[in-house]
Write a protein that binds this DNA or RNA. Structure first.
Lengths: 143, 143
DNA sequence: AAGCTTATTGAGATTGAATCTCAGTCTAAG
DNA sequence: CTTAGACTGAGATTCAATCTCAATAAGCTT
């Protein structure tokens, strides 16, 4: 695996007349190995530890490319800086966020997806992505 | 109107041993007069124009208080900095965001609310607020 | 494989939203 | 009216994110 996302990235770059450099390759490969959410500084730190020489600037420059290529997506957290997660090749899901312990629960509901489609149709809106974040207390914290 | 939100704010401040100052009062009164989304710098600029003398620092310090008091809520936009909107006394709603023209459509669905309650229950999660943002193209841009 | 055009990189400067500092001020309780 | 401690404003500071620009490398062309 991982082939699929790299292929998508390569094709995206090509379509934009952009180049697949060692740096961009190191970044996407690292992202594909990650589970859960991550942020740019974290990527930078980990890539440095890996021996890859990729500057902070390149990371910040590559992230929007990965987003536009549909490979990762920004997820909104409580935190002040941006967080991302891999989406291409993963099943879509939404998040519940525990405001006490910070736990993130991923969930998926077919009914929710269908309902949203219906709501969009009612507004004449062509939705192509969405983010649903429910804040509250997880089962452990709610006692 | 506007009484209701000011009362809630006063009670919130009291419960936290905080004080209702002229500055905080000017801020909440201005917020109550606003429609739609706003950001801190905008508030600062407008309050200055109003003749109210409220520093940028006080605005940034007051906003989290209004959020904690349940009077306003952060809304996530495409932009890099934080945006807010009045929620206390308004009906809850979610957003569709046109990625082409920036138009924001507010919508509400009872079914959506109920479905979310059910999903929370299934996870043992006690949800107490949520944000659903659908990105796509509005009817005008989708041609 | 060499040449060439143009995208890309990295280090450091820069921006800008948000936060912090601290001395002077004001609120609210007694 | 007094007092304790919350609050304010101006400016400094932080820090994520972006920009600059000279040096480098991708990848098409021959």
């Amino acid at each position: 695996m991982a082939k699929k996302q790299k292929k998508a990235f390569r094709e995206f770059l090509e379509s934009q007349n952009l180049r697949l450099t060692r740096e961009r390759e190191a970044i996407i490969e690292h992202v594909l190995r990650k589970h859960g959410h991550f942020d740019p500084e974290e990527l930078h730190f980990e890539l440095k530890g890996n021996g890859a020489k990729v500057s902070r600037a390149s990371i910040y420059r590559t992230i929007p490319l990965l987003v536009n290529a549909g490979i990762i997506e920004k997820v909104e957290n409580t935190d002040k800086h941006a967080h991302y997660e891999l989406i291409l090749g993963r099943k879509h899901h939404d998040h519940m966020l525990c405001t006490r312990c910070g736990k993130v629960i991923e969930f998926y509901s077919e009914g929710l997806e269908r309902l949203q489609d219906r709501l969009c149709k009612a507004e004449g809106f062509k939705g192509n992505s969405h983010t649903l974040e429910i804040k509250g207390l997880c089962s452990r914290c709610n006692r």
